[in-house]
Every structure is written in C-alpha cells, then in structure tokens.
Design a protein around this nucleic acid. Structure first.
Ligand SMILES: [Zn+2]
Ligand SMILES: [Zn+2]
Ligand SMILES: [Zn+2]
Ligand SMILES: [Zn+2]
Lengths: 168, 168
DNA sequence: GGGCGAATGATACAATATAACTTTGGGCCT
DNA sequence: AGGCCCAAAGTTATATTGTATCATTCGCCC
C-alpha cells in the first residue's frame, strides 16, 4: 500500500493572498496518525480501510458513501456498497472520520486520537466543512444536557452557512 | 377538517409519580398556533398539511416520512411520497416542525413562531426527543462561528443519549 | 490439518428522497 | 359566464442512501 497519490487530491478553494494549504501534508499526517492509533489499539487498518480513509481525505469537503464507492471501484473492482459502509463504520468507530448528519456524508477527522466532540462549520457555497474544537461550546452542550438531567452519549453540532472566503 | 382525534395519540413513557402529560393539549396548542401563524403569514395550512402536522404531533418521538405516509394513507388514499415530503417541506419552512438530521425524522416544534434555534435531546432508549431552548448554548454557537469568521444560516444541535427517566 | 474468527465478497433488498409532468380548483379579470 | 393564472395536489418514475444475509478467504492457533 501507501502508493504515492500526490496531486490526486482536491482541496478547497482559496482566496488570493491567502497562505496555501499543503493538503498532501494533511493526508500524510492523517494516515500516519491512523496507523499509529490502530496499531496501539490492536485493530486492523487494512489496505481497504486505509484506501477508503485516503479517499475521504482527498478534500475538506464531506464525501458521500457512493462517491467513495465510485472512487474505490476505480482500483478495486470488487467494491460494493457494503464494502464501503463497513470501512466507513470502522473508521467512524475508531474516530478517524466523522459522519456529517445533515449531508449524509463523511469527513476525515483532524483530531483523531484526541478526545473531542465533533463540531462543524459547513459552507453551502464551497462545500468545505471545517471541524472546530471549542471547549466553551462543548461545556455549553454539557450544561444544557445536565440541566435537563440528560446523559450525553453523542453530540452532533453542524453549523451551516458561509465561510469567510465565500461570504467575503 | 379538525375532526376529533383524542386518544389516537402516542405520547412518551412516563415514570411512576411523574405528573402526567396531557398530550391532546400539546396537539391542540400546536395546531391552533399553526393556524394563527399561517393566517398571519397569508400561507395556506391546507387540510392535507394540517393532517400531516397532526400525525407528526402524535408523539414526542421523531417520526419518519414513510411512517407519516403510512398513517396518512389510512384516510387519504392518494398519498404518495411527494405528498408527504411536500407537506413536510412546507411545515419546516414555516417553522412548525423540525427535521432531526441524525434520525432522518421529523418532530413538531414546541416553539413555533418564536425565534429560536433547534436544539434536541434525543433518548436512544425511549425514542423521545425534547426540544430545548438554551440561549447560552445558542450564544456559544454564535461565538464559535464568529471566531472562525463564519456566517451562520442554520444550526443543527442534536444531543443523543439517555433521558432522565431512562437513565434513572 | 482442522477449527476459529475477522475481513471481505456477493446478491438482494430496504429506506429515504426527488424529478418531472399532469390535473384540480379557487381567485380574478373582462 | 368564460378564460386565465397560480398554488396545491396527483401521478409515475427514478435517484440516493443504507442493510440483511449468506458465502468465501485467510491468518492464527492448537
Ligand atoms: Zn487539507
Ligand atoms: Zn466556503
Ligand atoms: Zn422548534
Ligand atoms: Zn428515554
């Protein structure tokens, strides 16, 4: 595995004068971290699962399961919906990707291995979703739940609108 | 329209000693408010749309579109998926119901006509979803978005876990 | 080399949602 | 009254997203 795939990716748009984004570095970091974490946990980041993780990481836009399937099928003829959903389920269980519920799509996690709740800013114009980690927001969620005597197991926070680039 | 439908509803479970919940009153209030709001806005709460609103309000559990369809079809033979989705879209646009993204299901809004962002506590055990209105939480969301120079258009907050009754 | 279990292959199908065109019916103008 | 308009609903077909189920493969252990 781990064949080179530079320049096969599709990062988000960027405004003139803005510092460029080495997305290959994003991917490399994510894959490396995934390997380390799976190793530590003694779970198998198989070639298939790693390939799916790569595909999800091709951009910072949430990607649909069937988009993953199409891409995967280019090099993996046996790919079928269960192939993809199983890999996605594994990656979610290990905290390597998140599901964006309001889009039915999946996004690489930038904070894999670090305890955090997923909070997203999703731009309707450019399609990028930024994962934010905001302890204040997280506390507010916990406080709201506590007030209602509710035991939190999962938090879904998805803010849709326009990112700074697209609103500017 | 507005035929009596008392006792056709299905409210959530309740713990012994807890004050009962007159769910018929929930429904009546919601329908009455919906009529007033649609009247003020000069939009049509048609019999079909009102019936769908009634069905969604049958319980405090989010209900799927096809559950609505099944129920609707009992008295409305022409009902088809577009029938239901159009009614649901209308009700969402008027703020009379919300979509719970993490469940692909719909829930009556208890704060129709009042500006608020939807925040939900969803119990995985009993299935009920409680809408909460927490200004602190709302402010935390706005602050997080502002910090990222993000223009908010829609906020999705869905906290899943166990409600006080089911955790107790 | 036989049994076990995790991962994947393979087939079929379920659940959720939308596109696109047609028909209905009420308000309104002449 | 007759014709026009438009929103709503009817109708048919299809797209998109997600699962159930059983078979096969393969490494590991005894
Ligand atoms: Zn990147
Ligand atoms: Zn953007
Ligand atoms: Zn509401
Ligand atoms: Zn409960």
């Amino acid at each position: 595995m781990a064949e080179p795939r530079k320049s096969a990716q599709q990062a988000g748009p960027r405004r003139a004068g803005e510092k460029p984004h080495d997305h290959d570095a994003c991917i490399d970091t994510a894959i490396a971290r995934a390997r380390t974490l799976c190793d530590e946990r003694a779970v198998q980041l198989t070639p298939l699962r790693e390939k799916v993780l790569q595909i999800v990481w091709r951009s910072h836009k949430p990607v649909g399961a069937y988009q993953v399937l199409d891409e995967l099928a280019r090099t993996h003829k046996a790919a079928r919906p269960p192939t993809v959903y199983r890999a996605l389920d594994f990656l979610i269980a290990e905290g390597l990707i998140h599901k964006i519920e309001s889009l039915n799509a999946y996004l690489g996690c930038g904070e894999a291995g670090v305890a955090h709740t997923s909070q997203f800013l999703i731009c309707r114009a450019c399609g990028t979703a930024e994962e934010i980690v905001d302890p204040k927001l997280d506390q507010a969620l916990d406080a709201a739940a506590k007030r209602a005597r509710f035991t939190v197991e999962r938090k879904v926070v998805e803010i849709a609108g326009l990112c700074g680039r697209c609103a500017g």
